[in-house]
Amino acid sequence: MSQTVTSTVKHSIISDFKEITKIRLSVSVVFSSLAGYLLGVETVNYTTLLLLAFGGYFMVGASNAFNQIIEKDLDALMDRTKNRPIPAGRMSVSTAFIIASVFTVSGIAILYSINPQTAMFGAISIFLYTCAYTPLKTKTPLAVFVGAIPGAIPFMLGWVAATNDFGIEPGTLFAIQFFWQFPHFWAIGWFLFEDYKKGGFFMLPTGKQDKGTAVQTIMYTIWTILVSIVPAFGFTGRLYLTPISAVIVFLLGLGMLYYAIQLYKKMTVLAAKQLMLASVSYITLLQIVYVIDKFIR
């Protein structure tokens, strides 16, 4: 009996740790960072790759832990978040703060060991997410614009980790992930609209599930597609995409655009969920295509 209780407690602690640091989101961010590194590097250094993975995880984990501390009272109001460790009473604010602080220091230190610029962008990401995006979420739909900045850093961060340089190449990677986040987050804001409303969050650009939001979602999806194929035209330095890969990326983009148009036509929760899934597939496959394109040409 005591063994069962002990294993349950251990499971709860592990689950809560994963929840406070949002491990699934962290993994997707690490994936973006590693893709950016592989695009920027001349010769792969596996130690740097490992450091980037851990530094990226700590960076995102810190941001999410601070976010959940700040929003603990609002999280308790929403079905989606009321069972998180702090509002559910399974973790104290002080414990979460210790985790967030340790993750911040560890993340920045690890990224600094790669190079100072990588650490600087990592610190900017944590600061903007925690001190700008999080408090703005209950104030203005422009919070999504602010949140798109730290959200776009990981893809770029990988290139900076590989080169210790910020130029047109990492700037392009930043732009791709920056524009992509608008249809992605507006899709989430649409299908979680009622739940977000309970917490006082208005994430949609018009504040409503209306045609205006749907039109803007289509517009930003088109911008995402256009920015994603720019490297095929030779304007982006060492970041280059072959015509075949550009066509593949363009077709993937048309797939996401299809679901954005479906949201405009149907204006349903299901259509928003489909767009969200399409957007996740798009950015993941885009990064894979970019990396494969570099190593096979």
Rank of each mutant, 00 (worst) to 15 (best):
L285M: 13
V30I: 14
I149Q: 01
S113G: 02
I69C: 11
W186Q: 04
A214Q: 01
I69A: 08
F201N: 03
I288C: 08
G237I: 14
E194D: 15
G89H: 10
D73K: 09
W190N: 05
P243V: 06
G199M: 04
A143Q: 05
A162K: 00
Q3A: 07
A148C: 02
N64R: 10
D75V: 12
P231W: 11
F155E: 05
G255A: 08
A161F: 00
F235G: 06
M219D: 09
A214T: 03
M256A: 15
T172E: 03
Q3Y: 10
G167W: 14
F202H: 14
L128F: 09
P205H: 06
K197N: 09
G40M: 06
A214F: 03
R297G: 15
I70S: 09
A278E: 02
L254P: 14
K197T: 10
I14K: 14
S94P: 00
Q262V: 10
I13W: 15
G36H: 07
I108K: 03
F250Q: 07
H184F: 09
L50E: 04
T95K: 07
F178N: 09
G237L: 12
G199W: 01
A35V: 08
L50K: 00
A232Q: 03
S101M: 13
R90I: 06
I20Q: 07
A260P: 13
F145Q: 00
S28K: 02
I218Y: 04
G147Q: 02
S281C: 07
V102I: 15
K72N: 13
E19M: 13
F155S: 06
T130P: 13
F145S: 02
K273S: 02
P231G: 07
T217Q: 05
W190C: 04
G189F: 08
L252Q: 10
I110E: 07
L111Q: 10
F202L: 12
F182K: 05
S279I: 11
I13Q: 14
A246F: 05
P154A: 11
A119N: 07
L128P: 03
Q68F: 12
M203V: 10
F17V: 00
S26K: 04
